[in-house]
């Protein structure tokens, strides 16, 4: 039943969408067969790789707070805090330019590279002289392979595009003649569940 404070139209929508979706008998049977093939779960089951997104026990169940663990936690937190401060100070060392990416790659041997040349403006480039079409897909353009084509420099065969990106971590890949490929010169993202690798660019948005 819908909450009484909701407007009538919203309650009607909720009621309509709440209509039961029948469960197919064949689907149910298949599911139960699949489950029957699994080992019987126990309360002591260990976490395995296949359960990455399953809810886990809260930390309060696994960690018993004693005076010793409290002291140890305090020491660890202090050490982590000091490390974080050191890293933050080191990263703010004068660099002579406004860099938006957390790292800048200038490896001349790379066939592709990414770099940030101004705040929020990120340049993506890929050396693919034999490609006929290269596009950029990523979290910033909803992985749309037609949204951000790269332009080819006929002299070098390098494909280039520059984008203004908001601060944050952006996952992306190139689409080279229909094939998704990670940027060979950029850090790789974690497994994306799609069977192909992605790359990561970090945009700090920090003004120095």
């Amino acid at each position: 039943m819908s909450a009484p404070e909701n407007p009538r139209w919203l309650n009607e929508i909720g009621d309509e969408l709440r209509r039961e979706v029948p469960v197919r008998a064949a689907w149910r049977s298949q599911l139960l067969d699949d489950i029957a093939r699994l080992p019987v779960p126990t309360a002591e089951d260990e976490i395995d790789d296949g359960d990455r997104d399953s809810p886990r026990r809260s930390a309060s169940r696994r960690i018993v707070l004693t005076p010793f663990t409290s002291l140890a936690a305090a020491v660890v937190f202090c050490a982590l805090g000091a490390s974080a401060m050191y890293v933050a100070l080191a990263s703010r060392a004068p660099s002579g330019r406004d860099t938006i990416a957390s790292r800048s790659r200038t490896d001349p041997s790379s066939t592709a590279s990414w770099s940030a040349t101004a705040q929020e403006l990120v340049r993506f480039q890929l050396s693919a002289p034999n490609a006929s079409h290269v596009a950029l897909v990523g979290s910033f353009n909803e992985w749309n392979p037609v949204a951000t084509p790269l332009t080819r420099d006929p002299a070098t065969g390098t494909w280039v595009v520059s984008l203004r990106l908001p601060p944050g971590r952006h996952v992306y890949a190139f689409v080279v003649d229909g094939d998704v490929t990670a940027d060979p010169a950029a850090p790789r993202a974690a497994d994306n569940d799609f069977g192909s690798a992605n790359s990561v660019v970090l945009v700090s948005g920090r003004t120095s």
Partner: peptide, 15 residues
Amino acid sequence: QESFIRAYRSLGRYE
């Protein structure tokens, strides 16, 4: 289906 299978495998962690 994936959800039920994962739930079954992780049942020991349900609180």
